[in-house]
Design a protein around this nucleic acid. Structure first.
Lengths: 193, 193
DNA sequence: GCAGATCGGCTAGCAGCGCTAGGATCGGAG
DNA sequence: CTCCGATCCTAGCGCTGCTAGCCGATCTGC
């Protein structure tokens, strides 16, 4: 009994090690440096061990992405709660969101460019994946007026995501990030609100 | 002389063949199916021939992406010119842009997810890459008010890109695309303009 | 306490990838 | 006719994700 629980604990630990190693490697050297051999060396086990934990490499990347969604939601929540007033909350959320994307590009990539088959926009969407969206929803809800708050949140989210992506790939000059954010907020939360 | 020109012509043709084959393969089976071997078989030459035309596989993908930028700019231009009034032009541009992304997902991916090292947002950005942006700029310019039109166009572009990407990966329900687009336009081009 | 089943992790290898070295072949020039 | 240069191919390198099959350690039943 105890032996078995110890084994399960060790196994769970190792699984976390794998995810952590993948994340760290991706964040320091980019996802193209994350190979199953490299990962195996990092956790000091042989390569096939990875496959007793995950179905494949993409499953490992998905696990990293899920971590990312949790952290992103946390950071956005903290920023939103600290802000006073609707417009400030929206601005705080926007800044936190794009800041996260800029601060952790590899993680953000795992979440939005790679792990494509996560169950989003479905009734069974796990809470971890919904939380980030809910933060945006909370922030922009007062601005909905006649519009559906959900649609509004989706659209605002998409705008933030688009900014993050285009800036990250150098398609938009990075130094004007603040100006773009200001403009976006001015269009969604006009004047004094 | 004539022989040499014939050779050059054939060579240019073959180069176009390669790009066309890469694009078609990507659009029908996805980019993961586009391998240099597959490509070589498609043009009925051996694999190393590809490398006498392009520096590597990514260069081929970049060539496909450039084609995409030209076509996207064309489609957006046609839509914008056909529209009357500022708001209608903005709506037309938005619909054409997101429609292109939905109609040609592989091509759009090559343009924005893969070919990362295209010279954007720099003084020497080639016209092909600027044209699409300029169409957006033309459309939204009248809405700038006190804001910089360039910043406005960048932000609007980012919103469209974000919508396209999130919808494509199933992170936003596809059937509400129109509602999101309407809302976005209502925020950038309010009421009767 | 010991034989047999079970499980966990390893070594080795497969098919496929992007890319390249080196040789054959073929056309034009002297 | 011979040589030379360009063109294209075969073969192969080092890497990838992934898997088959073995082997030792541990757990189970007698």
């Amino acid at each position: 009994m105890t032996i078995q629980t110890r084994r399960e604990r060790e196994r769970a630990q190792r699984e976390q090690q794998i995810v952590a190693a993948a994340r760290e490697l991706a964040e320091t050297e980019g996802w193209e440096a994350v190979t199953t051999r490299r990962l195996a060396a990092e956790i000091e086990y042989s390569q096939p061990v990875l496959y007793s934990h995950f179905k494949g490499k993409t499953a490992i990347m998905t696990a990293v992405a899920v971590q990312g969604f949790e952290e992103l939601a946390d950071e956005v929540r903290v920023a939103r709660i600290a802000a006073h007033g609707t417009r400030e909350a929206v601005a705080a959320v926007a800044t936190a969101y794009t800041g996260f994307a800029r601060k952790r590009p590899a993680l953000y990539d795992a979440m939005f460019t790679h792990a494509v088959d996560l169950p989003f926009a479905r009734p069974d969407t796990p809470v971890h994946l919904r939380n980030g969206f809910d933060e945006i929803l909370q922030a922009v809800q007062p601005l909905a007026a006649d519009d559906d708050p959900g649609i509004l949140a989706e659209t605002f989210w998409a705008s933030l995501h688009g900014l993050a992506m285009l800036e990250r790939s150098g398609r938009l000059p990075a130094d004007l990030h603040g100006a773009r954010l200001d403009l976006l907020i001015s269009r969604f939360a006009p004047a004094a609100t």
